[in-house]
Design a protein around this nucleic acid. Structure first.
Lengths: 222, 222
DNA sequence: GTTCATGATTTTATCGATAATTTGACGCGC
DNA sequence: GCGCGTCAAATTATCGATAAAATCATGAAC
């Protein structure tokens, strides 16, 4: 996914770290120590610091002035916040994208939906889901809006992996199909309404904690 | 406004540069050369680079991998984009803030509206306008959402200053009053609808260009 | 046993210098 | 005159080292 040669070292480091944080490989609250990271990537700490700034901007890390940066923690309230922001912005994007959506794009989106339904692990489901959402909003041609949506998807994925890290049950996504059907009919309003509801649905499931007990985990499943 | 001692050097540099870019002191497209900036602030270029990353995240600068960073340019399409994003996100925030808005907050917001009406220059009007909007959305208590709105306001201010750099005619803001009246009555839906329309209104005015001719300038006036 | 101060260690923040890359100019051949 | 390659100057990206700050542990006083 990452490590394109034309990118600067800091960009590559930030992407790798972002992947790890999203995948849940690094616990929320963990301190990211620049020397260790620098050593791992065989780099100095200057590009590492720049990578930290990028993570900060994406909301994946928080930095306190002279105390370093740590992986951002998250609570149920943040899951809801991201879900609502996604609903607001993706609907806006879809409304502008709709006139530019071609049958080929709808076919690709349907393909992504099928891929999601056939996924047996979270990672591949998330990848297919993200592809679906990206396909239908991209034709809006609003770069700033799309960048904001991308960042929110990264946060979503993080919540998702935290809850469904290990197991995943396959299921058919009726919302995606309803959105595509509405778009095929040219019924943009229904598509937007369905998308808004779809994205705001916050799934919950029990997750075993370290103490042997159970706690509820929440995530956006759409 | 800036230069708080507890902040890191990079933060202070980025804030100063952001102010300048927003105020239009630096032309869009201008290259920001790290050595010059470093020298001006009496610093090395490492914190300057980090400042650049922050500006990039705010959408005030764009960076090409080995070619340096330049002040972001902007077109009418971007003004519209920011206006629509602001409408979507501020309405979302207001809807959540409404139940937590106290009479004291409404009074402060009314004060801000009056201050805006009595402003005879763009900068003080913008400051009052921003205060109004911030006051009514802040009680939503959604930090990520508020941060996103802040960045959009910075972009808005930039467009505004570019169009009304020198002159400004005082005017009474009826929309702000209508929003406050609706909130006082507990009519959140009307308040949200008015806010959405208010923010999306893109003002335009002729501006003299260097060539002695005139071009249209566009800005969000709300 | 608890609290507070003190010193050692770790970690961050910054600097000065070097390597790599781009930009721009000049001159050569066509 | 126009395109193209080469070289020099400017600029970015990175590194290693130093200074400053925070954390942690230890121990003394109460």
């Amino acid at each position: 996914m990452n490590a394109r040669k034309e990118d600067t070292l800091a960009v590559r480091i930030s992407r790798t770290l972002a992947d790890r944080i999203i995948a849940g490989e690094i616990e929320p609250g963990t301190r990211l120590r620049q020397d260790y990271v620098a050593e791992e990537f065989g780099a100095s700490h200057v590009p590492v610091r720049e990578a930290f700034r990028r993570l900060e901007a994406q909301g994946l890390a928080v930095s306190e002035p002279r105390k370093g940066v740590r992986v951002a923690s998250f609570a149920l309230s943040e899951v809801r916040e991201v879900a609502e922001m996604r609903a607001a912005l993706e609907v806006l994007a879809l409304r502008h994208a709709a006139p530019n959506i071609t049958p080929a794009i709808l076919d690709a989106a349907e393909e992504a939906t099928r891929a999601g339904d056939n996924s047996h692990d979270v990672r591949s489901w998330e990848e297919a889901n993200r592809r679906f959402h990206r396909l239908i909003v991209e034709p809006c041609g609003m770069p700033r809006l799309l960048a904001a949506i991308d960042d929110l998807h990264a946060a979503s994925a993080r919540f998702l992996f935290a809850a469904w890290r290990l197991d995943w049950e396959a299921r058919t996504d009726h919302d995606h199909r309803a959105i595509l059907a509405a778009l095929r009919k040219g019924d943009v309003e229904t598509a937007c309404a369905t998308l808004a509801r779809h994205v705001q649905w916050v799934g919950q499931r029990p997750v075993p904690t370290a103490g042997g007990r159970q706690r509820k985990a929440f995530a956006i499943v759409g």
